[in-house]
Every structure is written in C-alpha cells, then in structure tokens.
Write a protein that binds this DNA or RNA. Structure first.
Lengths: 339, 339
DNA sequence: CTCCGGAAGTTATACGTAAAACCTCGGGCG
DNA sequence: CGCCCGAGGTTTTACGTATAACTTCCGGAG
C-alpha cells in the first residue's frame, strides 16, 4: 500500500483530487456528493472517483459540518453506562442512525466523568439533536437551553420541552408481575423499590400498588446495587407481622441481591419466597434460580427514539410511542409455601 | 428566560457578540479564547463577556475544528458495550480527557450496529486520535490507514503501528490464580477458556498453562455467555479420568455459568469444585457463592490510555505501561474435597 | 521636538466544503 | 440564419472561527 500523496504528509483535500483529475474542486464535490446526474459526464465522474481513491481522499467532516450547518450526529444521554440496558438502547439507536448516515455519540451523565467545564465541550456544536434515556428532568437542564431538539425515552411524558417521547409500558409490566404472583396464590407482598429517583421507578411503584390493592404490601427502598438490595431485603423481612411470600423488585440487580439475602436468612427461592426482577438483564439468567422478570425491548426503544429524532429534524411531527413489555417467568417465582 | 437574540432564531455567532459589544470579531475571539492579556483592556474584555452571556453565545465547534485542524476528540473503540469492563475503561479515559478539554466518543465495534458504509462516517474527520481496547489486530484494519495516532489497550504489544501500548498484567493474574488454587491443595484443573479470539485470552491461557505445568489440566472453550459456559463445563466434566477439583475461567461470566452447570450436576461450589473468574465484574458479587476472581484496574487503564494519546498528540514519546492486577479471593474457591 | 515602543485594537485571511450563479459550446428549431 | 437550450463544466461565495499582520494613539526618553 504505497501512498501516492501529492503533498508531503498533509491529508489530501478535494482540491488535490481536482488537480489530480484535471477538473475543478466544484466538480469533485458534485461527483463525490452524488449530485452529478446531468451535470457531469460519466467519463469525468469516473476519473474523479479514480483520483479520489488513488489519493485516499476522505472529506473533512469539520468543513462539511460548517458548510452544511448540520452534523448528522446525535447525542445519547444515559444515566449510567455500566447498565446493560443503556448499552442496548444505544445499539438500537445507532443501527437506525447508521441507516440514515447519522452517528450517535454517547454521553453518560455525571458518573465520575469529572466536572467538565461544559458537558458539551466535546460535541455541542457538532450535534443535530439529543436523545435522553431514563434521565431525571432536572438532570437535563444543561441540555435544555440549547436550541437542539430533544427526544426523551422512558421519561415523564408530561415533560413538555421535549420534541417527542417514547416510553415503555412499565406500568403494564408491573401489572403482569402482580397478576402472575396472584395467580400463583400469593397474598402477602414486599416491594423492593429503587432509591434512585426516576420517573420509570415511580410508575412501577404506582402500578404495583394499584395492582396489589387490598393485599398486604411492605415497601423498602434500596440503591441499585447488590449490597444495598441485601440490606433492604433484611429490613423488609424484619418488619413485624406475617412474612411476605413474594418479593417484587424494581430491577434485576435488586432481585439478585434479594435472592442472596434470602438464602443467607435460610429461606429458599422460590419455595419459601418468590422473587421477581425487572429489565431482563443478562444477570437474570446468570444467577440461580434464574429470575422471573419483565423483558424490555431496549433496542427497540433506542430505534424508536432515533426515528423520532430524525422525524423532528425533518420537520415532521413525531408521534409518541408506548412500547409493550412482557413478563418472562423463570425459576425464581412459584406458589407460596403451603400452610 | 427571555432570549435577547438580535437576529430571528439563528444561533448567535462571534460577530453578533462583537456587534453587541461594539468591538470587532477578532477581539471577541481573543477574549473568549483567553488570549487577551496585554492585547485587550480589562474593560473591553468585560463587556465582551457580558454581551456573549446576554446572547447566550456558544462557539461553533465545526468552525473551530476547521480553523484549528484538530478537534480535541478521541475515539474509543471497544468490542462490546454491554461488558461492564469497557464502560469502566471509558469512564477513566473520559475523566482524563475532560481535564484536558478533550471529549471521548465511543465506538462499539460491529456488534449489531449495522453495516454503516463507513464506520467513521459520524466522526472520522472530527477526531484527533484513537484508543482501542482489547480489539483483535485485524478488526482495527479500517482504522489503520487513517493517519490518526492509535493507542492500544490490553492488546498484543508486539503490534507495531500503534503509537503506544498500555496493558494489564493478566499473565500475573493467572499466576496468582494458579498459586491460590495450588496453595489450597488442588492438583487437577480444568480451564474454561474464551472462544472469542483475543490477545488477552491467549496470554491468560499461556500463563495458566505454564503456572500449572506438571498438573492435570483439561481445557474447553466457550463463547462469552452463561449458556455457552454451562455447556462447556458439562463437556469438561464428562471427559474421562478423575474429575478436576478446580475450574479456572477466563472471565466472570464464564465462571457464573460454570457454577450454574456444576450445581445442576449435583456438585457444590466450592466444597466439591472450586471456580475462579476473571475481571471482577459486578456479577462476581451478585452470584452465590461470590466469585474468587482477578480484579482489573479498568478505569486506570482508560486513564493511562488517554494520557498516552495526549502525550503522542503533544509530540512526546509515550512510554508503554503494564498495570498490576490483584487476586480477590471470595467464596467460590476452597480446599479440594478430602479423599 | 522627534522618535520609539507598547497598549489596545482592527483588518484581512485561511481552514475545506457545498452549492448557487455563471460560462461556453454545439445542435436543433423556427 | 438567428436563437435558444441543455450538457458539461467553472468561478465564486459563504459557513464561523483563530490568528498573523497591520494600524492608531499616547507617554516618555533622547
């Protein structure tokens, strides 16, 4: 692979290609931009492409972005990258973006990334729009005063200021969990709720409370990690009164912690206590017993989010979406102990 | 929040700020670029800043990048975003980058992201350099012909073409695992190796083989998921001869799968078989028993990688690094069954 | 009084691209 | 024969910024 560069080490520009092909820079731009039908002869177009390939020409994106005033790049804001759910949202968004010549840049909101003076410093002006997933409304303030269109995923749909909303029907997910446990015969429940403030968890809690109306429900809160979940589980079981036979968790991580805590207390899952998770992470099938949980179409919400953003950028009205979720019953839930 | 914009809805430029402050555009650039000591009076600088704030001025990065010929942006290429390890590498790299006014863009290599015509389409020209973590050499071909400096993390250091290498001492990690198990009294081993081709796994395998020289070692390969690990574990135990008492896994995910498979076969961990992982993911403490594993300084290698890239960009010679790793003994390993 | 140098700016230019506006030429039609 | 039109280009300009090069003014040294 010899490099037939004309000038020293500098990267070739469209002007270099023009010189090599014996045409003007404008013609190069037309040919490479695929806007040459009827304006440039087949012959000339061919030699331009040839010259470009020979020089290894790559258009300078900074110049293109400046000229066009848009960048074909979207920012995806997520609360935590270590959570597999967001990696999957990214995957979906990036797939749709790629199909439209767009790129997606990830921005994990303050999670030890350090206090950049301006969170946008690296990309702000290089963006066409923003997609935010599962972010608290106030954490997005910094992004609000931008004139960039904002699409919110898995967030409070009453939040105006977003150009579009796409949500998961997590309320229905919790109702499915409640129905599943009731059909198994459970009557005494505990809810292991996330201590992280988030709209999605508020909805889950409200839906569960409504679906279990009339039954005994203890609620405890835990941070989203295994050890926090274990401590919270112990607190839930230590409360006075007859022990719950089913423990509904806001999240698979919490459920995994709950299982550990229960076993440490000498209780078997699901024989003595049933446990349910939420999200259906890889973790759900890594632990034993495998978790009964709610599967979320993570890639799908990413796709829909990007589609909505593209629609907004095209000046269309993006319709809001509510994606269905499904209960996946596995080994961590079963009938309550006979008594 | 009234918007005191001069022109309609268009975003204000440095020229708008200049007009508002009654100075020239060059002066605005000097002041806002912090290059005005001795060139502009304190008074004028103040009014410029005031005007910029009033207009909500944000410099156009595309224009700045074009002018400067660099973007203060690095690309971080990783094999899979769903793996927590890479999320941590990103965190470290981004923290160092932010300290230097740099941004980091993530590029999860072909993992369902769809066949973008050009993987760089979204960012190529907007990059100053590339950091690749744990990537196979040939998967980086597309990035090689770029003239951008490439820093490789956790990869074959003999790969020239990289401007710098930073590695984890995974060989030592495996030696620590071997020593730990031998000190517990184990003599018959199985190695649950990753089927994913990667330099880091080759090194782990070689180091383990050397450290266990003389002992009985069965090796089986598995894809990096729980179910693949379970199948491979069953194969390992089905081999003829006396059963191994310790199962060394290339990765925590494999170890989690191994534990599940063993329990399903009626074997207890660690009473009948000890299991060790590698990486120390959150998963390691989510399963039961908690995994004895090798903790990797993931954030640290990200930091070192970005430091190396910054050094290269500054024209300095980046020295290669080899970061120490440490065995973390937990519940999944113990003495072999008495016999 | 002249001249010089520094303070405090301004003017001009380049970065590489996309695209609007313009040019040239040969052929077909009235 | 004159005119217009379309094919096949070229010339020119603008995007917004950073900075080199130039200007102007003023106070002090010789």
């Amino acid at each position: 692979m010899q490099s037939p560069e004309p000038t020293g080490g500098a990267r070739p520009t469209s002007r270099d290609v023009a010189r090599a092909a014996g045409v003007s820079q404008a013609t190069v731009s037309l040919v490479l931009g695929d806007k040459w039908r009827g304006r440039v002869s087949e012959r000339t177009a061919g030699s331009v492409r040839e010259a470009a390939a020979a020089l290894g020409y790559r258009p300078n994106l900074a110049a293109r972005n400046l000229r066009l005033g848009r960048t074909r790049t979207a920012l995806l804001v997520v609360p935590a990258l270590t959570n597999e759910f967001f990696a999957r949202v990214y995957t979906g968004a990036a797939a749709v973006a790629a199909r439209h010549g767009f790129g997606v840049v990830l921005y994990p909101s303050p999670e030890g990334v350090g206090p950049a003076r301006d969170p946008f410093a690296s990309s702000r002006a290089a963006l066409d729009g923003i997609i935010a997933s599962s972010m608290a409304a106030d954490a997005l303030e910094a992004f609000r005063d931008t004139d960039l269109p904002l699409v919110m995923l898995d967030s409070d749909p009453s939040d105006t200021g977003a150009a579009a909303h796409v949500n998961l029907d997590v309320a229905d997910g919790m109702r499915q969990v409640a129905r599943h446990l009731r059909e198994l015969g459970h009557t005494r429940f505990a809810h292991l709720a996330s201590a992280v403030p988030s709209w999605t968890f508020d909805v889950r809690a409200a839906a569960l409370a409504e679906a279990l109306a009339g039954a005994a429900v203890r609620t405890v809160r835990a941070p989203l990690d295994v050890h926090g979940a274990m401590a919270a589980t112990e607190r839930a079981l230590a409360e006075p009164g007859p022990r719950p036979t089913a423990l509904v968790c806001d999240d698979d991580i919490l459920a995994a912690g709950a299982c550990k805590a229960l076993r440490r207390l000498g209780l078997r899952v699901p024989e003595d206590v049933s446990v349910t998770g939420f999200d259906d992470l890889a973790l759900a099938t890594a632990v034993e017993p495998e978790l009964t949980t709610v599967s979320l179409p993570a890639e799908r919400i990413g796709e829909r989010g990007m589609e909505a953003l593209l629609a907004v950028l095209a000046g269309e009205q993006a319709r809001p979406g509510l994606l269905p979720v499904a209960l996946t019953a596995r080994g961590s839930s079963g009938p309550p102990p006979a008594r």
